[in-house]
Design a protein around this nucleic acid. Structure first.
Lengths: 235, 235
DNA sequence: CAGTGGTCTAGACCACAGC
DNA sequence: CTGTGGTCTAGACCACTGC
């Protein structure tokens, strides 16, 4: 039983799809037919089909059958962390400012809070081998138990700051990526003397009720970051 | 049977994880215990656990048990297509050049081909409401059946160009995102007169044997693109 | 109506953990 | 050795589809 029956079923159907014998929209053999083909029980056949469905190869219509799915050619998975990207690792982090502020109009809009709600502002500078590579700003909506100690904040990623107070599973996260020219403050902090753009990555985190918990904006020197992704899961 | 038993099992365990009763590393009740708790058969319990595993909530160690998994806080899913992004949709595309070329050193390296292999070069300009928003270059390793008709190339996305000759499921894709200043050619094509950076998106596609099939580089005006992603699947 | 997929059961044997 | 998860069976009933 080195190779389970359902794996053989999965491989057999995957091969038909990858080689083009079965095209998107085509029907798969019915479950009963597959039972006979592979000499397996229906539950075993269904386990194989469940795996194919999970991997995006097929979908089923009750009462009709299982069909080959057109893959989503636009889907990519990227693993992003402020401190690590494919050409750079942050090895030092400097806390520039920690403060309690009132949100301006832009923040009121982005974080869906009232103007009177207090926010924690955290400004940091990231370094690699002694050179500044990114300027990082976080706005956190204050909650009890939130870390406000400098030692805790200095080297934490956005998720780490918030996972202290919220069960991590409850988080919904959004990321936005764009390019921008640095203003004078950025140029100063990031040692930019000539024409060099910034790659900006915004992260927004939400709680279980889908209310924003915080906003993080990281401004990278254009020559210090490349984000990478693939259509495949890691591992 | 409006709500299947396995769904109740899934919701029950999810709730324990999201509320913090169960933390990463904690053991779940054993399958036999869950059978008794929910008055269900083992196959039904296992179906629930399979769903939790698929969604990244738990993992299992044979002979030991099922355990709560620490979620991957760095994982994001982005849906990218040269023609569409969250602030812009390309409504017109102009073919600048289609040619057969020999790869230079950079392309030999990126596409892992020999210097003597012919490549198809496609240069296009993307427009939104009459204004140029992106400059797009594709390098395809020639294969029989590949589209070389202008009508076919003008409005096709990278995946569409290649899916004509390769079963789409076989594709592995990589994406790389970075910021860059425009050179004179880019400034000319994209109507850039002042300091405006480019957001560059490179796509590389691979065949079933993991050999590169093509490289696409899209240079967007910095004010015409934002890429967005979340930690959640679409739909 | 017959055929399809969706749910579910009550068993079984196996390999592996840990005592 | 007992308990765990991993695989598998041979049935069952249901809701839905299409003729």
């Amino acid at each position: 039983m080195a190779i389970p029956v359902y794996t053989r079923i999965v491989e057999s159907i995957k091969e038909k799809i990858n080689s083009g014998v079965l095209k998107p929209g085509d029907a798969i053999d019915s479950e009963n037919t597959l039972c006979k083909e592979f000499g397996a029980s229906r539950m075993t056949v269904r386990k194989g089909l469940a795996i194919l469905a999970r991997d995006g190869y097929i979908y089923s219509i009750p009462g009709k059958g299982n069909f080959v799915k057109a893959p989503d050619l636009t889907k990519y998975i990227i693993y992003y962390d402020e401190m690590r990207n494919s050409i750079n690792i942050v090895d030092k982090s400097q806390l520039l400012e920690v403060n309690i502020i009132m949100p301006d109009d832009k923040l009121v809009d982005k974080l869906q809070v009232t103007k009177r709600k207090n926010l924690i502002l955290i400004k940091r500078l990231f370094f690699t081998e002694g050179n500044p590579v990114a300027y990082d700003i976080k706005y956190l909506i204050y909650q009890r138990g939130m870390p406000i100690l400098e030692e805790e904040l200095q080297d934490a990623t956005f998720s780490e700051m918030l996972s202290k107070t919220t069960p991590v599973f409850a988080l919904k996260k959004e990321i936005t990526i764009y390019a921008q020219m640095p203003d004078e403050e950025m140029k100063y902090y990031l040692n930019i003397y000539d024409e060099l753009p910034l790659l900006v990555v915004e992260q927004k985190l939400f709680d279980r009720e889908n209310k924003p918990m915080g906003l993080g904006i990281t401004y990278y020197r254009g020559d210090s970051i490349k984000l990478q992704g693939t259509n495949q899961e890691r591992e």
